[in-house]
């Protein structure tokens, strides 16, 4: 669906996006993660045609940004991290204006606008002035506006920033619904817990480069928590610790009363062998499990920074 090839953007000597290559398949809900200044917004702005890249290309479906930016604009719905509303303009008129900007007929705008306002729970606010809406409502209106021309790709730049918890939940539900409808969605966000609940795949950017990208489960398994094993024993801890320390692939990380956490570098069969060896040596193991990696820990591990 979205192909970004070797994209580079420089501001003077500062490289905001450095040879970024990314493919987002159709129907995916893709989370774009990275610390401030990682290059997420720059990438999104280039994809939306709001900025020119120094090198590389962007393609949506079979349309390249370089040759058909107007055609490409029809394929993209963009929700920025600001609301961009007018005083003295009603919700219905706001939708009408953007529909006209996409060359839609008044009849189509009226019909689609009604459906979309219902989808975002704003159908009772049609005659209300946009600037009187709450932040959450404005953000939902922005999503409805971005969907008006029925784009194939919806791009949201930090859609939950500045929203209260209730509005965040509503936004999350809305995005889940849109994903279920088959829309391809790209979300840039700092709220990692939300992304891990919603997204089917993620891409982590740091200092303009894509550190990793793929399905969340695969990345977790590959990189983070998979190495850390929690082991609980019923009997004395000493024999268990002695046996573990004898293993070259094991490093004991911490020891508590009846629990030990180890870092294991090895394949699954060797891990099973480790458990078997403990049991053979009469260590009464009551719990032996791999630690689930969180997106936060993954993010910190990959970016070397602090998760927000």
């Amino acid at each position: 669906m979205l192909y970004i090839n070797d994209l580079t953007k420089k501001y003077g000597s500062y490289t905001a996006v450095n040879h970024l290559t990314l493919h987002i398949p159709e129907g995916d809900l893709f989370g774009f993660v990275g610390p401030n200044g990682a290059g997420k917004t720059t990438t999104i702005r280039i994809v939306c045609g709001l900025m020119r890249a120094n090198a590389g290309s962007v393609q949506i479906g079979n349309i390249s940004a370089a040759v058909g930016s107007r055609k490409m604009k029809r394929l993209i719905g963009y929700v920025p991290d600001f609301f961009g509303v007018y005083d003295n303009l009603k919700v219905k008129e706001y939708m009408d204006m953007y529909g006209s900007m996409y060359g839609m007929s008044s009849r189509d705008i009226a019909k689609l606008s009604d459906d979309l306002l219902e989808l975002v729970n704003l159908s009772d606010k049609k005659e209300v002035y946009v600037d009187t809406l709450s932040r959450g409502m404005k953000q939902r209106l922005c999503v409805a506006r971005a969907l008006l021309h029925n784009p194939r790709l919806l791009i949201l730049d930090e859609p939950s920033s500045g929203l209260d918890p209730r509005a965040r939940v509503e936004m999350k539900e809305l995005l889940k619904n849109l994903h279920a409808m088959g829309k391809t969605i790209v979300i840039s966000s700092h709220i990692l817990s939300e992304l891990s609940e919603m997204c089917t795949s993620i891409g982590i950017m740091n200092r303009g480069q894509l550190v990793t990208a793929g399905r969340i489960e695969d990345i977790m398994k590959k990189i983070s928590g998979g190495r850390r094993i929690h082991l609980r024993v019923l009997s004395d801890m000493e024999p268990a610790l002695r046996l573990l320390r004898e293993q070259a692939q094991v490093r004991v990380e911490s020891v508590r009363e009846n629990e030990v956490i180890i870092l294991f570098d090895g394949e699954e069969t060797r891990l099973a062998g480790l458990l078997g060896m403990l049991l053979q040596n009469q260590v009464l193991v009551t719990d032996f499990h791999r630690e689930e990696g969180s997106l936060e820990s993954l993010f910190m591990q990959l970016t070397g920074g602090v998760a927000e």
């Binding site: 939306c48 045609g49 709001l50 993209i76 963009y78 961009g84 007018y86 900007m101 996409y102 506006r145």
Partner: peptide, 14 residues
């Protein structure tokens, strides 16, 4: 200043 200009540019208007 109202941050609406970028939104206009993402539409099909030249």
């Amino acid at each position: 200043e109202r941050q609406t200009f970028d939104l206009m540019l993402t539409t099909c208007m030249t």
